[in-house]
Amino acid sequence: MKVLTVDIGGTFIKYAYMNEDMIILDRGSAETPKSGREELVEAIGVLYDKMPEVDGIAISMPGIIDAENGYCVMGGALRYNDDFYFRHSLYQRCPVKIHIENDAKCAAMAEAAKGSLKDVKDGFVIIIGTMIGGGYIKDHKLHRGKHFSAGEVSYINTIRDGDPEYETVWGNRCSTPALCKMYADKKQIPESQVDGVRFFEAVHQGDEDAKKCLELFTKEIAVQIFNLQNVLDPERFAIGGGISAQPVFIEYIRENLKKLYCTCPYRVPQAEVVCCKFQNDANLIGALQCFMTEEVLEEKVS
């Protein structure tokens, strides 16, 4: 079986031509259409046309996704996908089996199947990128929830009374762009001069401003991991996204968690935090894993 796997991001579409053993036969990227859903469908159709043989399409995308019905409840970073039966529209252009799933949930499936969560029963994945995504693995299975939003940590409210400038949504506060903006404001330089690579170069060079920003940023993440651990009690948290490849980033999260547990007046379960195995390919691998899982379920039913 040959599957076109597609990871739709806010800026780029990453794609891979893969077989059922998750071997990548071809790969590439294209810009994500900004104008609307019709252009997005056509962009994937163009990728479909390029492949020699496609038995199915597996899609990872932002937003709250009803995977069973191929419906995008809310489009996340791509709001033109709000209230959109995406699978139905794409099928008119690409008449093969199609499965869609939230991007962070795809990453969680990848880590649960063959990654850093494969040996645990319950685990949680947090992906830090343009916003923050989350996926909850319960009893070795992806837990979607009644309204398909289980694990959607990006929308956690962090409002503080009396501080109108405080970002109320965690996904806006603890995204990679938010970290870069924090550092740019500290240095009083244009945001365009800072990205994740440059920021961590400054950290490794001992820049005190960069280290202070990283401390504040990872403290926010540690607080929510602390909260999630006490609510869901998973065995392990796996952190993904581009900046998670930086060992110092994971170290700072762990150190801030230690401080929280030391100051907590109660004996509570302590979160284990590791880095995701698959990094930038997690969404593609997870999309295929979701596709293959559905294939198996359908074979059992038939």
Rank of each mutant, 00 (worst) to 15 (best):
L4G: 09
L4Y: 08
T5W: 03
Y15N: 10
D21A: 12
M22W: 12
M22E: 03
L25C: 13
A30E: 09
A30G: 11
E31F: 07
E31P: 11
G36P: 01
E38W: 03
I44N: 02
V54L: 02
D55I: 07
I57G: 01
S60T: 08
C72L: 03
V73L: 11
G75P: 00
L78Q: 10
Y80K: 05
F86T: 08
R87Y: 04
A104F: 09
K105I: 12
M109Y: 05
M131T: 15
I132W: 00
G133D: 03
D139H: 12
D139T: 07
K141S: 11
L142T: 04
R144L: 15
K146M: 12
S149Y: 13
A150R: 02
G151D: 02
G151K: 02
E165M: 08
E167N: 09
V169G: 00
W170F: 15
C174H: 08
C174N: 14
M182V: 04
Y183G: 12
A184Q: 11
A184Y: 08
K187H: 10
P190S: 12
D195Y: 08
G196P: 05
R198Q: 02
E201N: 10
A202C: 10
D207V: 15
D209E: 13
A210V: 11
K212D: 15
T218E: 04
T218G: 08
E220K: 04
Q224D: 12
N227L: 12
Q229V: 10
A238M: 00
A245H: 07
Y252T: 11
R254H: 09
R254M: 04
L260M: 08
C262E: 07
P265L: 01
Y266E: 00
A271K: 00
V273H: 02
V274I: 14
Q279A: 12
I285Q: 01
C290H: 10
F291M: 04
M292R: 07
E298H: 05
